[in-house]
Amino acid sequence: MQSSDLKNLKIAVVGAGYGGAAAAKALSLLGADVDVYEQASQIREVGAGIGLRPSTMNRFREWGIFDAVAKVTSPSEFFEILTADGAPIMKEPWPADGEQTHTHLVHRGDFIDALLGVLPEGMVHLGHKLESVRDNGDRSVLTFVGGKTVEADLVVGADGIRSVVRHQLFSQAGPVFSGEHAYRAVISVDGAQGMVVDDNLRMYIGRGTKVYLLPLRHRGQVSFDITALCPDSTWSPQVTKDDMLATVAGFDERLVEITRNLDMSTVNVRAVYDIDSVDTWHSDSVVLVGDAAHSMLHHQGQGANSAIEDAGALADALREADSVKEALARYQATRKPVTDKLQAISRQGWSEDEINDVFPGQKPAAAASAE
């Protein structure tokens, strides 16, 4: 689209999470008039650590915000998968993207703060819970609880796994329970029982349980995550310390001790959900990004990265296409095949038997060394 057309484009982003904040930044750099509407009255990101892949960091460099994000991260060289008692299965460097070779490990809260911190003052409007979206073809109207309405040339639905935008316009299918729970806490490096010696992600696999140690050494902490099979689909289940200890029975005793020492009031507990692939992400004036379009299980660590890539691809498409309608079609054609594949791979999870499905030809390290 012509620069003059982009500058006349009024865009409303629904949701101020990773996808919404990144989309707001990328689209505002086009010169468009962007506003972000977030239902929460204050931004408080719970959870723990994530990894920002080299391609994601390249997008931040392109947008001029690399330093703002990098200063709250720890660069990581590789990730490693081990058995429950610490025997190596595989060790891989993070996939590079050009000169960018490091994945950057970051706390979710720090990441959101960094993204929101690079948006212009007044762009984000808190306390706006979306009630309905009406698609009028070339423009759409948002109505929020309390009666406020906003009209925009383009609505970006970045409102997460339980997206109102997706549900009202594109798919009424709800989130899908994975049969797992995730228990997440941030502990001090000193409390990690000597298991964190560098800035690299390690995952320990036992029967039905995965334990992740993700260093956040720039803040002297470690993200400690347990993902365990559980039939309870309650969105925010009630879990005791004994329940958690049962999931790590048979693991390296240091991991058991970390679990035993957790302050349960600091542990984020949730059932793990994703969504089935959504056939259509856009109309002529509404589009989905991030979890609203393709929420996926966390096993491959691709949720936040995919949301950032969505934002970049959407901005690219608007710059390159002749109209908003054409741009949205181009965006979906670019991103949907990628995220469909990632959703499917993420559902495979990580087990010793499934590693070869994700990394074809990869043999467990112990088996390889025996040959």
Rank of each mutant, 00 (worst) to 15 (best):
M1Q: 11
D5P: 02
K10F: 06
G15F: 08
A16D: 10
A16C: 13
G20P: 02
S28L: 04
S28Y: 01
A40G: 07
T56L: 05
F66M: 04
F79T: 03
I81H: 01
T83Y: 07
G86S: 14
A87L: 11
E92L: 13
H104T: 00
V118G: 08
E121L: 09
H125V: 04
H125M: 12
L126K: 15
K129G: 01
G137I: 12
D138V: 09
G147I: 13
K148F: 07
V150Q: 13
E151L: 06
Q172F: 04
F177H: 14
S178Y: 06
Y183G: 03
G194Q: 08
L216P: 03
V222Y: 02
I226S: 02
A228F: 01
D232L: 08
S236K: 08
L255Y: 04
E257D: 09
I258H: 05
I258A: 11
T259Y: 05
R260Y: 09
R260N: 14
M264G: 11
R270F: 00
V278S: 03
V287I: 09
L288V: 11
S295H: 04
L297E: 05
G303K: 02
S306W: 01
E309G: 00
A313Y: 00
L314T: 03
A315P: 05
A317Q: 02
R319F: 10
E320L: 10
S323K: 07
Y331S: 00
Q332R: 06
T339D: 02
K341Y: 09
K341T: 14
L342E: 04
S351H: 09
E352G: 10
E354I: 00
A365E: 10
A370F: 11
